[in-house]
């Protein structure tokens, strides 16, 4: 299991477009991915659930990866977050 966290810097938070791009990226990996706040995580491969998190600027986002390609998935996700959110 790999866990990463990221503080959102985009003033618009995670809106539809970046949420969709992130879900699309994560769906390429076999591992399971849970995403959200420390207390409330959802399946990060379900767009409607990720959008519903409605994470805003300054919120800390946590992602938990579990499965054979967890390391590669977590690295790709972190890179996406840093360049888009």
């Amino acid at each position: 299991m790999v866990e990463i966290s990221y503080v959102i810097t985009d003033p618009r938070g995670i809106h539809a477009r970046p949420a969709g791009q992130l879900v699309k990226l994560l769906s390429k990996y076999k591992c399971s991915v849970q995403m959200g706040t420390k207390e409330n995580k959802v399946d990060a491969k379900r767009l409607i659930a990720v959008m519903k998190l409605a994470l805003a600027q300054g919120n800390e986002l946590f992602l938990v990866f579990d499965g054979e390609d967890e390391k590669a998935a977590s690295e790709a996700a972190l890179e996406f977050l840093k360049s888009n959110l």
Binding site: I48, M51, A54
Partner: peptide, 11 residues
């Protein structure tokens, strides 16, 4: 399911 905070979208 969701009304976006900025009301420009819904699911």
């Amino acid at each position: 399911i969701q009304l976006f905070r900025t009301k420009h979208a819904f699911t």
